[in-house]
Structures are given as structure tokens and as C-alpha cells.
Amino acid sequence: MMTLAKRIIPCLDVDQGRVVKGVNFVGIRDAGDPVEIARRYNEEGADEITFLDITASHEQRDTTAHTVEQIAREVFIPLTVGGGIRSLQDIRTMLNAGADKVSINTAAIHEPELVSDAAARFGSQCIVVAIDVKRVSASHDAPRYELFTHGGRKPTGIEAVEWAIKMAALGAGELLLTSMDRDGTRDGFELVITRAITDAVDIPVIASGGVGTLQHLADGVTEGGADAVLAASIFHFGEYTVGEAKAFMADRGITMRL
């Protein structure tokens, strides 16, 4: 049946306007240029592109806005920008630069009203709340996941499913769920918490953190119940194209835009 397709979202980590995690494409002249990389993913059939601005200083964010502007001028699929979004002004800057959605992470923890204010001001459709979680229960106990900040180093004590429900109620249009236990491991998504959150909220959930194979992407949808899957390194290093990932998932009965 023809219905909504599951999405594949390549993610670029950008520092001062340059892609920082290794990118190794045949035929790319400048592996650090986010515009060139975004263009490549767009050609491969990416459903959206997410930018994570990991620039340390606030002043350098102008560079990111400029990069978003350049990409938006030639890549006609949705762009999400995350990292360091702390205020309505930050959101406005990114939307004006051409972002379609912004992802709010730590600021939502310190100031949950930012999510409701932003949704009221700009519409839920452009407000993504990023949720970084780690499992805090022992392996033989019932699983419990909590939010962490600072790249997974700083605990907050906030339980993940409750938080997801609260963010949806405040007006988030989508959740970006990252397992900090899995991020960078290539062991696959943390499916237990992915499933718990997708079942708990009505809004779409993007699974992130840990993709090492195409099977992991499919598992995120079939086991985790995710509406979209985000990955960085399996695409950056040229192991797989977005097109190959989509064909693999479609072969397993997942509705994709081919």
C-alpha cells in the first residue's frame, strides 16, 4: 500500500563551517565541505539532511548560518540544524538561513518553555527535540534510561520516556533520540528505548546512535518502531550510499521513497 515512507537522514557534524567526522567519498574534492557533501547525499536520495553544529563558541555560529544558507540554495529536501540552539533568536536565525527544522537539546532541559514558545512562534513542524539517553539500570534490572548532557558525560536524572511525553505535550513536532551508549560504537541502535519512546508519543521519532550496518537501519524501523533513521559514519566513509540503504530496507518490506 502506498503510504508514508520511512526516512533516511544522513547527519553531518559541522565545526566552524567544516564537516569534522571523517568523510571519504570517491569523487568528492573537499571532504570537509558541508555543501558538497549535502549535495552528494541529496543526489543519492536522502530524505532529509541533519546538521549538527558542534562549534564551541557562540560567535562562530554565523558561519553555520552561512553554510545552511548555501546548502538551502541548492538542496531541495528538508534540512534540520541542531547544536547550540538556546533561544528563539537562535531558531529564527537558522530558519531564516534556510533550515526547515531546528533541533533543541540541552536548552530544552534547562528551559522547557523554550520548546512551547518556539512551537507557538514558529509552528511544531519545525521544532525537533533531541534526547540523548543512557541506560542507567543494571543489566538484570528492568531497563531505565535517563537523559545525559555534554556528550553523555553529565547525568540529569530525568527519565527518558516521561521526558519524551512531556516534550511532545509542549509542542515538539518530532523527537531525535540518540543513545549515548551506542553512539560511535557501530553496534546498532538501542532498540529497547527506541521502541518505548515511539510507543509512548504520537509524534514521529528519529532513531540515532550506533549504526554500523544496513541491517541496523532496518532494525530501527521494524524493531524500534522509528519513523526515521539517522546515521553518519556508514555514509561518510562511502561504505554504503543512501540509495543502497533504501534498497536494502525496501527489500525487507519497509516503505521507502526510492
Binding site: M2, T3, L4, A5, K6, R7, D47, S124, Q125, G173, E174, D202, I203, P204, D227, A228, R257
Partner: peptide, 11 residues
Amino acid sequence: RLKVPHMGWNA
């Protein structure tokens, strides 16, 4: 179950 918003690529 269908998520709302209807977000993504539909035919």
C-alpha cells in the same frame, strides 16, 4: 498507529 504530524514523503 499513525503519527501526527503527518511528516515525510507520501505518495
